[in-house]
Amino acid sequence: MKSSALLFGVIYEESMVQSMSTEKIMSILSSLTEGFGMNFLLFIVTLVVAIPLGLLISMGSMSKLNFRIHTLRIYPIRWIFRTFVWIIRGTPLMLQLFVVLYGPGLLFDMPMRSRETAAFVAFAVNYAAYFSEIFRGGIEGIPKGQYEAGQVLAMTKTQVFFKVVLFQVVKRIVPPMGNEIITLVKDTSLARVIGVVEILMSAERFTKQGLIWPLFSTGIYFLVFNGVLTVLLGRLEKKLDYYKG
């Protein structure tokens, strides 16, 4: 067990490590893996919900609907969505977790069913706000000429979006999305602040038994998972790289 004892350059008394049975180590590892299962679930749920939700928010924040009061042009939908994005991006995710967990119960007398649900909601909304800005950048970055070319070729707006624009947007947003997705993997551990049993919380318990290596080993889970994601994202990027522009 020297290798795990030396993890991150921290050395522990050999006796403590050596006194541990293989059984004990296995049970600790399985508890960590179980904890990481929660991180993984939170990761997947967030992605699945936040991507479509983010697309919706990006559409709202690009809304052209407007009217005029005197010299002031009002974009009601755009402003509502941009204010929402500002609030979500401008406040800590940790605070949002608390608000989602306690808010419904305190304000509307409808307590959250479970801490996990609260975490799913807070993460999905938080990441949707970030994704929406990436989508908006991707969509607004498509040259006007692409839409115009679609129009003069008698395509409908829907056809222009799905046949011309969407693919180019996807190509543009893969690198920034990759960044966010990798951040998300690590952020899932924040769920512990509202008592969701994820890997860091599982590992921290063992410090009471005088064991610090389980806590430090959690880093390996994150590193391996993000390593796999990095490879997959790199492949996707390469696949989309068959053309330039």
Binding site: P143, G145, E148, A149, Q151, A154, Q168, G245
Partner: peptide, 20 residues
């Protein structure tokens, strides 16, 4: 309207081909 649109062919200064 799209049928009418198709009766006008338009060539842009900046080509505007679909890169993908």
């Amino acid at each position: 309207q799209r049928e009418i649109q198709a009766k006008f062919g338009f060539v842009f200064q900046s080509f505007n081909l679909f890169p993908q």
